[in-house]
Write a protein that binds this DNA or RNA. Structure first.
Lengths: 154, 154
DNA sequence: ATGATATATATCGTGCACGATATAATCGTT
DNA sequence: AACGATTATATCGTGCACGATATATATCAT
Protein backbone atom coordinates (compact mmCIF):
# COMPACT_ATOMS: atom_id res chain seq x y z
CA UNK A 1 0.00 0.00 0.00
CA UNK A 2 1.36 3.33 -0.95
CA UNK A 3 -0.97 5.37 1.17
CA UNK A 4 -2.87 4.54 4.29
CA UNK A 5 -5.15 7.58 4.40
CA UNK A 6 -7.52 7.67 1.44
CA UNK A 7 -10.06 9.29 3.75
CA UNK A 8 -7.82 12.19 4.72
CA UNK A 9 -7.44 13.23 1.11
CA UNK A 10 -11.18 12.95 0.57
CA UNK A 11 -11.80 15.01 3.70
CA UNK A 12 -9.42 17.72 2.57
CA UNK A 13 -11.07 18.06 -0.83
CA UNK A 14 -14.68 17.79 0.35
CA UNK A 15 -16.53 20.89 -0.77
CA UNK A 16 -18.27 21.36 2.54
CA UNK A 17 -15.00 21.31 4.46
CA UNK A 18 -13.44 24.08 2.43
CA UNK A 19 -13.14 27.50 3.97
CA UNK A 20 -12.65 28.92 0.51
CA UNK A 21 -16.06 27.72 -0.64
CA UNK A 22 -17.68 29.03 2.52
CA UNK A 23 -16.28 32.49 1.75
CA UNK A 24 -17.12 32.20 -1.94
CA UNK A 25 -20.70 31.15 -1.37
CA UNK A 26 -21.27 33.60 1.49
CA UNK A 27 -20.07 36.37 -0.79
CA UNK A 28 -22.60 35.36 -3.43
CA UNK A 29 -25.36 35.16 -0.85
CA UNK A 30 -24.58 38.66 0.41
CA UNK A 31 -24.42 40.08 -3.10
CA UNK A 32 -27.78 38.52 -3.90
CA UNK A 33 -29.25 39.99 -0.73
CA UNK A 34 -28.04 43.45 -1.71
CA UNK A 35 -29.16 43.13 -5.32
CA UNK A 36 -32.85 44.08 -4.99
CA UNK A 37 -31.99 46.85 -2.52
CA UNK A 38 -29.33 48.31 -4.81
CA UNK A 39 -31.55 47.95 -7.86
CA UNK A 40 -33.74 50.64 -6.34
CA UNK A 41 -30.71 52.92 -6.14
CA UNK A 42 -29.78 52.00 -9.70
CA UNK A 43 -26.26 50.77 -8.90
CA UNK A 44 -24.47 47.44 -8.70
CA UNK A 45 -22.72 46.13 -5.63
CA UNK A 46 -19.17 47.07 -6.74
CA UNK A 47 -20.47 50.50 -7.72
CA UNK A 48 -21.96 50.80 -4.22
CA UNK A 49 -18.54 50.00 -2.75
CA UNK A 50 -17.01 52.85 -4.76
CA UNK A 51 -19.70 55.16 -3.44
CA UNK A 52 -18.93 54.06 0.13
CA UNK A 53 -15.33 55.15 -0.46
CA UNK A 54 -16.42 58.52 -1.86
CA UNK A 55 -19.01 59.13 0.86
CA UNK A 56 -16.22 58.74 3.40
CA UNK A 57 -13.90 61.10 1.54
CA UNK A 58 -14.71 62.84 -1.70
CA UNK A 59 -12.47 63.67 -4.66
CA UNK A 60 -9.92 60.89 -4.66
CA UNK A 61 -7.69 59.38 -7.31
CA UNK A 62 -8.67 56.24 -9.19
CA UNK A 63 -5.67 54.50 -7.67
CA UNK A 64 -6.74 55.40 -4.14
CA UNK A 65 -10.16 53.88 -4.71
CA UNK A 66 -8.35 50.82 -5.99
CA UNK A 67 -6.20 50.62 -2.87
CA UNK A 68 -9.18 50.80 -0.57
CA UNK A 69 -11.25 48.26 -2.52
CA UNK A 70 -8.24 46.16 -3.55
CA UNK A 71 -9.16 46.43 -7.22
CA UNK A 72 -7.09 47.30 -10.25
CA UNK A 73 -7.72 50.14 -12.67
CA UNK A 74 -8.75 47.68 -15.38
CA UNK A 75 -11.76 46.96 -13.19
CA UNK A 76 -12.33 50.48 -11.94
CA UNK A 77 -12.01 52.55 -15.11
CA UNK A 78 -15.06 51.10 -16.87
CA UNK A 79 -16.99 50.96 -13.59
CA UNK A 80 -16.28 54.63 -12.91
CA UNK A 81 -17.33 55.52 -16.44
CA UNK A 82 -20.67 53.85 -15.75
CA UNK A 83 -21.04 55.80 -12.53
CA UNK A 84 -20.27 58.92 -14.54
CA UNK A 85 -22.88 57.99 -17.14
CA UNK A 86 -25.36 57.54 -14.31
CA UNK A 87 -24.55 61.09 -13.23
CA UNK A 88 -23.30 60.02 -9.82
CA UNK A 89 -19.64 61.02 -10.14
CA UNK A 90 -17.36 63.32 -12.12
CA UNK A 91 -13.96 62.29 -13.48
CA UNK A 92 -11.38 64.93 -14.26
CA UNK A 93 -7.62 65.04 -14.65
CA UNK A 94 -5.72 66.63 -11.81
CA UNK A 95 -4.19 69.95 -12.90
CA UNK A 96 -1.20 69.35 -10.59
CA UNK A 97 -0.46 65.92 -12.03
CA UNK A 98 -2.01 65.21 -15.39
CA UNK A 99 -1.55 61.47 -14.91
CA UNK A 100 -4.14 61.44 -12.17
CA UNK A 101 -7.89 61.29 -12.58
CA UNK A 102 -9.84 62.69 -9.67
CA UNK A 103 -13.21 61.11 -8.99
CA UNK A 104 -15.73 63.25 -7.15
CA UNK A 105 -19.38 62.96 -6.25
CA UNK A 106 -22.04 64.95 -8.05
CA UNK A 107 -24.97 66.34 -6.08
CA UNK A 108 -26.94 63.31 -7.22
CA UNK A 109 -24.19 61.03 -5.96
CA UNK A 110 -24.08 62.80 -2.60
CA UNK A 111 -27.84 62.65 -2.23
CA UNK A 112 -27.88 58.92 -2.79
CA UNK A 113 -26.11 58.48 0.53
CA UNK A 114 -29.29 59.10 2.47
CA UNK A 115 -31.09 56.23 0.80
CA UNK A 116 -28.09 53.96 1.08
CA UNK A 117 -27.84 54.53 4.82
CA UNK A 118 -30.64 52.07 5.43
CA UNK A 119 -29.04 49.18 3.57
CA UNK A 120 -26.49 47.85 6.06
CA UNK A 121 -29.15 47.65 8.74
CA UNK A 122 -31.45 45.63 6.53
CA UNK A 123 -28.76 43.18 5.56
CA UNK A 124 -27.71 42.94 9.18
CA UNK A 125 -31.28 42.05 10.12
CA UNK A 126 -31.36 39.33 7.47
CA UNK A 127 -28.04 37.96 8.68
CA UNK A 128 -29.59 36.83 11.94
CA UNK A 129 -26.32 37.64 13.68
CA UNK A 130 -25.78 39.59 16.88
CA UNK A 131 -23.61 42.68 16.75
CA UNK A 132 -20.67 40.98 18.51
CA UNK A 133 -20.99 38.01 16.15
CA UNK A 134 -20.78 40.28 13.13
CA UNK A 135 -17.78 42.11 14.54
CA UNK A 136 -15.94 38.92 15.37
CA UNK A 137 -16.68 37.47 11.94
CA UNK A 138 -15.58 40.64 10.21
CA UNK A 139 -12.40 40.77 12.25
CA UNK A 140 -11.55 37.16 11.48
CA UNK A 141 -12.11 37.70 7.76
CA UNK A 142 -10.06 40.87 7.62
CA UNK A 143 -7.22 39.18 9.50
CA UNK A 144 -7.36 36.20 7.15
CA UNK A 145 -7.47 38.44 4.10
CA UNK A 146 -4.51 40.51 5.24
CA UNK A 147 -2.41 37.44 6.02
CA UNK A 148 -3.17 35.99 2.59
CA UNK A 149 -2.31 39.28 0.94
CA UNK A 150 0.99 39.41 2.79
CA UNK A 151 1.83 35.84 1.71
CA UNK A 152 0.75 36.48 -1.88
CA UNK A 153 3.22 39.29 -2.27
CA UNK A 154 6.19 37.07 -1.40
CA UNK B 1 -32.34 69.39 14.23
CA UNK B 2 -33.84 66.49 12.41
CA UNK B 3 -31.23 63.98 13.41
CA UNK B 4 -28.93 63.84 16.38
CA UNK B 5 -26.65 61.04 15.15
CA UNK B 6 -24.67 62.06 12.09
CA UNK B 7 -21.88 59.82 13.36
CA UNK B 8 -24.02 56.72 13.55
CA UNK B 9 -24.87 56.97 9.89
CA UNK B 10 -21.21 57.50 9.03
CA UNK B 11 -20.25 54.53 11.17
CA UNK B 12 -22.79 52.30 9.47
CA UNK B 13 -21.58 53.19 6.00
CA UNK B 14 -17.85 53.11 6.77
CA UNK B 15 -16.21 50.63 4.44
CA UNK B 16 -14.08 49.10 7.15
CA UNK B 17 -17.10 48.44 9.35
CA UNK B 18 -18.95 46.49 6.70
CA UNK B 19 -19.14 42.73 7.02
CA UNK B 20 -20.08 42.55 3.36
CA UNK B 21 -16.80 44.15 2.29
CA UNK B 22 -14.83 41.88 4.60
CA UNK B 23 -16.39 38.88 2.88
CA UNK B 24 -16.00 40.41 -0.57
CA UNK B 25 -12.34 41.28 -0.11
CA UNK B 26 -11.49 38.01 1.66
CA UNK B 27 -13.03 36.16 -1.27
CA UNK B 28 -10.81 38.06 -3.70
CA UNK B 29 -7.75 37.42 -1.55
CA UNK B 30 -8.45 33.69 -1.46
CA UNK B 31 -9.05 33.54 -5.21
CA UNK B 32 -5.78 35.35 -5.83
CA UNK B 33 -3.98 32.93 -3.53
CA UNK B 34 -5.37 29.97 -5.48
CA UNK B 35 -4.68 31.52 -8.88
CA UNK B 36 -1.00 30.59 -9.33
CA UNK B 37 -1.62 27.13 -7.88
CA UNK B 38 -4.57 26.47 -10.18
CA UNK B 39 -2.72 27.89 -13.17
CA UNK B 40 -0.43 24.90 -12.94
CA UNK B 41 -3.45 22.62 -13.16
CA UNK B 42 -4.79 24.68 -16.05
CA UNK B 43 -8.15 25.49 -14.47
CA UNK B 44 -9.83 28.52 -12.93
CA UNK B 45 -11.18 28.69 -9.40
CA UNK B 46 -14.85 28.10 -10.35
CA UNK B 47 -13.76 25.23 -12.58
CA UNK B 48 -11.87 23.79 -9.60
CA UNK B 49 -15.07 23.97 -7.55
CA UNK B 50 -16.89 21.95 -10.20
CA UNK B 51 -14.10 19.38 -10.09
CA UNK B 52 -14.43 19.20 -6.29
CA UNK B 53 -18.08 18.28 -6.77
CA UNK B 54 -17.25 15.63 -9.35
CA UNK B 55 -14.38 14.17 -7.34
CA UNK B 56 -16.83 13.64 -4.50
CA UNK B 57 -19.40 11.99 -6.75
CA UNK B 58 -19.02 11.48 -10.47
CA UNK B 59 -21.62 11.66 -13.24
CA UNK B 60 -24.09 14.23 -12.00
CA UNK B 61 -26.60 16.49 -13.69
CA UNK B 62 -25.77 20.11 -14.48
CA UNK B 63 -28.52 21.16 -12.12
CA UNK B 64 -27.07 19.14 -9.28
CA UNK B 65 -23.70 20.83 -9.68
CA UNK B 66 -25.59 24.10 -9.61
CA UNK B 67 -27.34 23.18 -6.39
CA UNK B 68 -24.11 22.29 -4.66
CA UNK B 69 -22.24 25.38 -5.87
CA UNK B 70 -25.30 27.64 -5.76
CA UNK B 71 -24.83 28.67 -9.37
CA UNK B 72 -27.27 28.84 -12.26
CA UNK B 73 -27.00 27.00 -15.54
CA UNK B 74 -26.23 30.23 -17.37
CA UNK B 75 -22.97 30.25 -15.43
CA UNK B 76 -22.34 26.51 -15.55
CA UNK B 77 -23.08 25.64 -19.17
CA UNK B 78 -20.23 27.67 -20.67
CA UNK B 79 -17.92 26.74 -17.79
CA UNK B 80 -18.62 23.03 -18.33
CA UNK B 81 -18.02 23.41 -22.04
CA UNK B 82 -14.59 24.82 -21.24
CA UNK B 83 -13.88 21.88 -18.93
CA UNK B 84 -14.96 19.62 -21.78
CA UNK B 85 -12.66 21.43 -24.21
CA UNK B 86 -9.85 20.94 -21.70
CA UNK B 87 -10.59 17.23 -21.82
CA UNK B 88 -11.41 17.04 -18.11
CA UNK B 89 -15.13 16.15 -18.31
CA UNK B 90 -17.66 14.60 -20.66
CA UNK B 91 -21.17 15.98 -21.18
CA UNK B 92 -23.89 13.71 -22.48
CA UNK B 93 -27.68 13.67 -22.44
CA UNK B 94 -29.26 11.18 -20.09
CA UNK B 95 -30.97 8.36 -22.03
CA UNK B 96 -33.63 8.11 -19.30
CA UNK B 97 -34.49 11.82 -19.41
CA UNK B 98 -33.36 13.63 -22.51
CA UNK B 99 -33.64 16.99 -20.76
CA UNK B 100 -30.75 16.15 -18.50
CA UNK B 101 -27.08 16.51 -19.28
CA UNK B 102 -24.81 14.23 -17.27
CA UNK B 103 -21.36 15.56 -16.50
CA UNK B 104 -18.69 12.97 -15.81
CA UNK B 105 -14.94 13.01 -15.31
CA UNK B 106 -12.57 11.80 -17.98
CA UNK B 107 -9.46 9.87 -16.95
CA UNK B 108 -7.58 13.13 -17.23
CA UNK B 109 -10.09 14.81 -14.95
CA UNK B 110 -9.85 12.00 -12.41
CA UNK B 111 -6.07 12.10 -12.46
CA UNK B 112 -6.00 15.79 -11.72
CA UNK B 113 -7.35 15.04 -8.27
CA UNK B 114 -3.96 13.85 -7.06
CA UNK B 115 -2.33 17.15 -7.85
CA UNK B 116 -5.22 19.14 -6.45
CA UNK B 117 -5.05 17.31 -3.14
CA UNK B 118 -2.13 19.48 -2.05
CA UNK B 119 -3.86 22.80 -2.63
CA UNK B 120 -6.07 23.15 0.46
CA UNK B 121 -3.10 22.48 2.70
CA UNK B 122 -1.03 25.17 1.05
CA UNK B 123 -3.77 27.77 1.29
CA UNK B 124 -4.38 26.74 4.88
CA UNK B 125 -0.69 27.33 5.63
CA UNK B 126 -0.89 30.80 4.07
CA UNK B 127 -4.00 31.60 6.08
CA UNK B 128 -2.05 31.59 9.31
CA UNK B 129 -5.11 30.17 11.05
CA UNK B 130 -5.29 27.23 13.42
CA UNK B 131 -7.54 24.32 12.52
CA UNK B 132 -10.20 25.27 15.09
CA UNK B 133 -10.11 28.88 13.87
CA UNK B 134 -10.73 27.76 10.30
CA UNK B 135 -13.57 25.49 11.35
CA UNK B 136 -15.22 28.19 13.43
CA UNK B 137 -14.88 30.73 10.65
CA UNK B 138 -16.24 28.31 8.08
CA UNK B 139 -19.17 27.42 10.32
CA UNK B 140 -20.02 31.06 10.93
CA UNK B 141 -19.92 31.85 7.22
CA UNK B 142 -22.04 28.86 6.26
CA UNK B 143 -24.59 29.75 8.91
CA UNK B 144 -24.69 33.36 7.72
CA UNK B 145 -24.97 32.29 4.10
CA UNK B 146 -27.82 29.89 4.82
CA UNK B 147 -29.75 32.47 6.84
CA UNK B 148 -29.37 35.02 4.04
CA UNK B 149 -30.49 32.46 1.50
CA UNK B 150 -33.54 31.64 3.58
CA UNK B 151 -34.42 35.35 3.87
CA UNK B 152 -33.82 36.00 0.18
CA UNK B 153 -36.40 33.44 -0.84
CA UNK B 154 -39.13 35.20 1.10
C1' DA C 1 -54.24 11.09 -27.26
C1' DT C 2 -53.83 16.16 -26.51
C1' DG C 3 -52.97 20.31 -24.72
C1' DA C 4 -51.34 22.84 -20.49
C1' DT C 5 -47.82 22.95 -17.21
C1' DA C 6 -43.45 21.95 -15.28
C1' DT C 7 -38.60 20.70 -15.66
C1' DA C 8 -33.70 20.89 -17.53
C1' DT C 9 -30.56 23.09 -20.07
C1' DA C 10 -28.98 26.63 -23.25
C1' DT C 11 -28.57 31.41 -25.18
C1' DC C 12 -28.04 36.42 -24.93
C1' DG C 13 -26.71 40.80 -23.00
C1' DT C 14 -24.49 43.40 -19.21
C1' DG C 15 -21.19 44.07 -15.70
C1' DC C 16 -17.30 42.57 -12.75
C1' DA C 17 -12.33 40.82 -12.29
C1' DC C 18 -7.83 40.32 -13.89
C1' DG C 19 -3.41 39.40 -16.73
C1' DA C 20 -1.03 41.63 -20.31
C1' DT C 21 -0.12 45.53 -22.66
C1' DA C 22 -0.32 50.49 -24.07
C1' DT C 23 -0.01 55.46 -23.40
C1' DA C 24 1.07 59.52 -21.33
C1' DA C 25 2.92 62.35 -17.58
C1' DT C 26 6.41 62.85 -14.01
C1' DC C 27 10.81 62.27 -11.78
C1' DG C 28 15.72 61.44 -11.28
C1' DT C 29 20.25 61.41 -13.02
C1' DT C 30 23.43 63.04 -15.63
C1' DA D 1 18.17 69.73 -21.60
C1' DA D 2 17.65 64.84 -22.29
C1' DC D 3 16.91 60.25 -21.52
C1' DG D 4 15.66 56.21 -18.78
C1' DA D 5 12.78 54.72 -15.13
C1' DT D 6 8.69 55.16 -12.57
C1' DT D 7 3.85 56.31 -11.91
C1' DA D 8 -1.17 56.67 -13.19
C1' DT D 9 -4.64 55.43 -15.96
C1' DA D 10 -6.64 53.15 -19.93
C1' DT D 11 -7.37 49.30 -23.32
C1' DC D 12 -7.96 44.48 -24.75
C1' DG D 13 -9.17 39.68 -24.27
C1' DT D 14 -10.97 35.89 -21.36
C1' DG D 15 -13.85 33.98 -17.93
C1' DC D 16 -17.33 34.33 -14.21
C1' DA D 17 -22.16 35.73 -12.59
C1' DC D 18 -26.82 36.64 -13.39
C1' DG D 19 -31.53 38.38 -15.22
C1' DA D 20 -34.35 37.45 -19.02
C1' DT D 21 -35.62 34.54 -22.45
C1' DA D 22 -35.69 30.37 -25.46
C1' DT D 23 -36.03 25.44 -26.50
C1' DA D 24 -36.85 20.87 -25.87
C1' DT D 25 -38.36 17.05 -23.09
C1' DA D 26 -41.37 15.16 -19.65
C1' DT D 27 -45.57 14.99 -16.89
C1' DC D 28 -50.28 15.60 -15.77
C1' DA D 29 -55.24 16.45 -16.38
C1' DT D 30 -58.71 15.76 -19.21
Amino acid sequence: METAEPDLSAELLALDNQLCFAVYSANHAITRMYKPLLDRLGVTYPQYLVLLVLWERDSVRVGEIGERLMLETNTLTPLLKRLETLGLVDRQRSPQDERRVIVSLTDKGRNLRGEAARLPERVFAASGCSVPEVQELRGALVALRDRLRARSGE
